[in-house]
């Protein structure tokens, strides 16, 4: 009796679910497909939060002719989303990176601290080359704030860093499966082209600039003749369920040569973080424009 009852329940359940299963298995009718194409697609936000650790090497001849090297830690945030006006072709990217380094000179007699906060906004056009592989290129506006602090200098203990830039950026993304694990490889590169940035004159003190008030000439027009920054970022997202584990490598290069002052700050960082797509709403029948594939 018990076996019979169980069988009956299973059959009843299957009978009840059958129409639903059928519906799910049914091909989308052509009018519905057209409707989906016309309807505004879902544009999930692809975000990543990262912790980064590595090495920084800094030379700023306003402070010292000697290069300093040391541990660099950073926190990063990335946000990608398809643009509303042409979601298949264009997308936007926000990047925030805060990094802090503590360094010493080769002899170990001096120490230097460094702090940088970078924000950038980019608009990129993407081209789907193969299934899962796309390239993108576009423009980027960036803001940098920070500084270097040499702990034993007298009236030149620190040098502030502030810059706004417009530049070019490119990105390549390849989504594939290795066994049952989906992976997304990405390479991003940013190259500021023109902008404005702060620099004191060769022997000008911060006392003169900000206490006495002689601020004339402290903002420089920046282009490749006096300033080259380059940001490279290679990452792989290992999709584990809804979220992904991000591993990567970030390299930053900041160089200026102005007023006979040279600045060269290089960062190499290992990236570890989490990433994923955030859906604001998820009606099942809507089309999705993802920046993962």
């Amino acid at each position: 009796m018990t076996t019979r009852k169980s069988l009956l329940c299973a059959l009843l359940g299957a009978a009840l679910l059958f129409p639903g299963c059928l519906r799910a298995g049914e091909p989308v009718s052509e009018p519905l497909q057209e409707k989906l194409q016309e309807e505004e697609p879902l544009r999930p936000v692809a975000t990543a939060v990262t912790f980064e650790i590595g090495r920084q090497s800094a030379l700023d001849t306003y402070l010292s002719p000697i290069r300093y090297r040391g541990l660099d830690v950073a926190l990063g945030y990335e946000r990608l989303r398809a643009a509303s006006f042409a979601p298949e072709k264009w997308f936007t990217r926000h990047n925030v990176l805060a990094n802090f380094a503590t360094m010493t000179n080769e002899s170990g007699s001096g120490s230097m601290l460094s702090f940088y906060l970078d924000y950038s906004f980019a608009m990129l056009r993407r081209w789907q080359l193969l299934d899962g592989l796309w390239l993108a290129g576009g423009g980027e506006a960036a803001l940098t704030l920070g500084g270097l602090y040499n702990q034993r200098n007298s009236n030149n203990p620190a040098t502030a860093k502030a810059a706004i830039d417009l530049g070019a950026t490119a990105m390549a993304s390849y989504h594939l499966r290795v066994g049952r694990l989906p992976l997304t490889f990405r390479y991003q590169v940013s190259l500021p082209v023109v902008g404005a940035y702060f620099s004191p004159a060769f022997g000008q003190s911060y006392y003169e600039m900000f206490y006495i008030g002689n601020t004339g000439g402290i903002v420089q027009f920046g282009a490749w003749h006096n300033r080259v920054d380059l940001r490279n970022y290679l990452s792989v997202d290992l999709h584990l369920g809804k979220m992904a584990l991000r591993l990567g490598y970030r390299q930053l290069m900041r160089t200026t040569h102005v007023n006979h002052i040279d600045t060269q700050v290089l960062n190499h960082m290992f990236v570890l973080g989490i990433s994923g797509e955030i859906f604001r709403s998820a009606p099942p029948a809507r089309r999705v424009v993802s920046l993962y594939y």
């Binding site: 002719p65 000697i66 170990g108 007298s154 009236n155 030149n156 003190s205």
Partner: peptide
């Protein structure tokens, strides 16, 4: 002269009138 600082490869610090 407002003094600035700099340093040598061996780590010695030098202070001098700069401004």
């Amino acid at each position: 002269g407002l003094p600035f600082s700099s340093e040598l490869p061996n780590g010695w610090s030098i202070r001098f009138s700069a401004s």
